[in-house]
Simulated scan of single mutants.
Amino acid sequence: MLVCDDQALVRTGFVTIIDAQPDLEVVGACGDGRAAVDLARRLRPDVVVMDVRMPVLDGIEATRLLAGVGVPDPVKVLVVTTFNLDEHVYAALRAGASGFLLKDAPIEQLLGGIRTVSSGSALLAPEVTRQLVGRYASRISPPDETPQESALTPRELEVLRLVAGGLSNSEIAAELVLSVETVKTYVSRILTKLDLRDRVQVVVYAYRKGLVV
């Protein structure tokens, strides 16, 4: 992991918490976005834990340089911020971040978020998903030639709406009385049919298309 935060106490705290885990290791830490880009390109961490507001280069632009569209061999970025309704967070997700969490989230949620993003999945803080995406998704045009939701089966459409509501795979499984593996299959099919990258884009798509309110 690479930790990037301009507040030394926060940065040190994250490093200490992450390094205490037997399955996680911090390979570097820095206090500005430019340094994050340089270190990430050199060290190739599994995940960059990125703050949004930083000097030299902010977390949004750093994320775009590391994980944006067209970036070869992109790095996974988890945005961790104090601003749960800040437009900059949404911009970071659009820039290519795999998800975000709030800095006041429980330690277990932070560690779980890092593991989730590292595994290739996307993560949205459930408590702010609806407000954040609902507020800003209408400003963004959908990708060109994006297939319509009519390509989805009724069950896939149901799963899409639950994903957009911020539910995890296990929560969706409980809601629909399905196995977690079956839910994963449905999510994978949704991503393929709609030509979307991850759950973050599923949420944006759902709000943009008016599938959830």
Rank of each mutant, 00 (worst) to 15 (best):
L39T: 00
L152T: 01
G210D: 08
R53L: 14
K184F: 00
V180E: 12
I60S: 07
V89M: 11
L132R: 10
V183T: 03
V26K: 06
K209H: 02
S98R: 15
L178C: 02
V37Q: 13
V133P: 00
R41N: 12
V212R: 00
P147R: 09
V71K: 09
Y90F: 15
L93G: 11
V47A: 05
Y186M: 13
I18C: 12
T182Y: 10
A105T: 05
V47S: 03
P106W: 05
A125F: 03
Q7W: 14
V80D: 06
T116Q: 08
D198N: 15
G70W: 14
G99Q: 06
V56H: 05
D144G: 06
D19W: 09
K103R: 15
V183N: 02
L43N: 07
T63G: 04
P74F: 00
G70A: 04
A137M: 13
C4Q: 05
V27R: 13
I172W: 06
C30L: 03
V69D: 13
T63P: 03
S170G: 08
D38R: 11
T116N: 10
A29K: 05
A122D: 04
D58L: 04
L157A: 13
A95Q: 10
V204Q: 00
L123I: 06
A62V: 11
V177I: 14
C4G: 07
D198P: 01
I17Q: 12
V52A: 02
D144C: 10
V203P: 01
T16P: 04
L196C: 06
L178P: 02
L211Y: 13
V48C: 13
Y205M: 09
L167A: 14
V80S: 04
L157T: 08
A40Q: 14
G70M: 11
V71Q: 05
L191G: 01
R197V: 15
A174M: 11
E108Y: 04
V15Y: 01
L85G: 03
A36N: 11
T192R: 12
A40K: 15
A164Y: 02
I172N: 05
Y186T: 02
L65H: 03
G113E: 09
P154R: 12
P55I: 05
V133M: 14
R189Q: 15
Y136K: 07
S179N: 09
L124D: 02
T116S: 05
E25I: 06
I107M: 13
A91L: 14
A151I: 14
A105E: 10
K76P: 01
D38N: 06
V180A: 07
L101W: 08
V3I: 13
E145H: 07
P55T: 09
V180F: 01
G59A: 13
L9F: 05
P74A: 08
A137R: 00
V47N: 04
G99P: 09
E149C: 10
L176P: 13
I190S: 10
E175S: 11
K209G: 01
Y207F: 15
I140Q: 07
R64N: 01
L160K: 00
Y136L: 01
V128I: 15
L65P: 00
L43F: 14
